[in-house]
Write a protein that binds this DNA or RNA. Structure first.
Lengths: 194, 194
DNA sequence: ACCTGAACACCGTTCAAGT
DNA sequence: ACCTGAACACCGTTCAAGT
């Protein structure tokens, strides 16, 4: 019976489910094929082997991260916006650790992943733009702040559960605030004439 | 012939060589056993399977990173010392990408890895101590700066070779300097009286 | 065009057997 | 005490065969 209507989208969806449920290392063509009620070799008609599937999952994970961070940037401005997007970044990593690991997969010359990377940095940059920083300084702030948040979350997850992480995270946010002072306001609910 | 004199140290050494030469994913019990001229199952007398070997490699990698960073902190002070230890951190990741990945392995309740982590942070903290920061502020600076460097290097390696990375790295160092101003001097070759 | 099923090479792991 | 070698379960991948 060839009723399963396999296609890259469905396959990637199952793959992401497995990654969310059982982690990065649990992703295998066999596991995906089993959930689809099909033999592992059937997947080769739609996906370029395990590496190809991994790339699709990486794209999916990057887009999810971008979407989360983008949402967190809506309706806030200034230092609160920096905190909000940082919290969203960290929140994605903690609620989807498997996808987060795919976020940092080797991406040599992959235009789709590079585009997602640019979008992610652009959200951070726009937050700083709204806080009064000029374009160049906003772009630099975006890269540095994203590095800091990413590094913190990576190390925190490797270290495992520990009560001190919350305090350390707040310390990092303070350090980031000192790094690039973001003035509140400007975009959104400003009131004065200027 | 049982001449191979297997022991955890030798096994770990071969494992690190493989990781350095062919990367994180190339580490397997089979590959290690082959280089030792022995069957894969022979390793189980000295190592707790693949997971056990990975943990040994992680400890080795952490100790190597600490040693590199520690060396870089000798004979320098102030902002130059911050730059030096950061460069060492980044240099280790670039020259030993396989070991660097083991550096961030899940380490739940592993005292040896936790100790190495503390030592690493302590080097950063001592640099800031020497630059005039009080103990509490030095410890916070150490954690935040290490996060920033780690995140940058992780993302830079995932992105693959790109000319812009050098400029972005220098931007990060400037941001870090703004984050925790490190006054030059105090320890080492100071000249003035006070 | 797409899936099956056999086949192959490769893993990690266990365990009885040798020494 | 330590290594061998067979055995098992599990991978990814290829390919001829069916439909």
């Amino acid at each position: 019976m060839s009723r399963m209507r396999l296609d890259p989208g469905r396959i990637t969806g199952i793959a992401v489910t497995i990654v969310d449920d059982r982690g990065f290392d649990a992703l295998s063509l066999s596991a995906v094929a089993e959930r689809l009620g099909v033999g592992p070799s059937a997947l080769y008609s739609h996906v370029a082997g395990l590496d190809g599937l991994r790339r699709l999952v990486a794209v999916h994970a990057m887009n999810n991260l971008v979407a989360r961070v983008r949402e967190a940037a809506i309706g806030v401005s200034g230092p609160a916006a920096v905190r909000s997007v940082s919290d969203a970044y960290r929140g994605f990593a903690r609620t989807h650790p498997g996808q987060f690991r795919f976020t940092v997969m080797p991406r040599s010359d992959d235009p789709e992943l590079a585009a997602a990377d640019d979008e992610l940095l652009n959200v951070f940059a726009l937050v700083y733009r709204g806080a009064g920083l000029d374009p160049g300084r906003s772009a630099r702030a975006a890269r540095s702040v994203r590095s800091a948040i990413h590094g913190f979350v990576t190390l925190e997850m490797a270290a495992g559960p520990a009560a001190a992480h919350e305090a350390h995270y707040r310390e990092l946010l303070e350090a980031v605030a000192a790094m690039f002072p973001a003035r509140p306001g400007r975009s959104g609910n400003r009131r004065g004439a200027g």
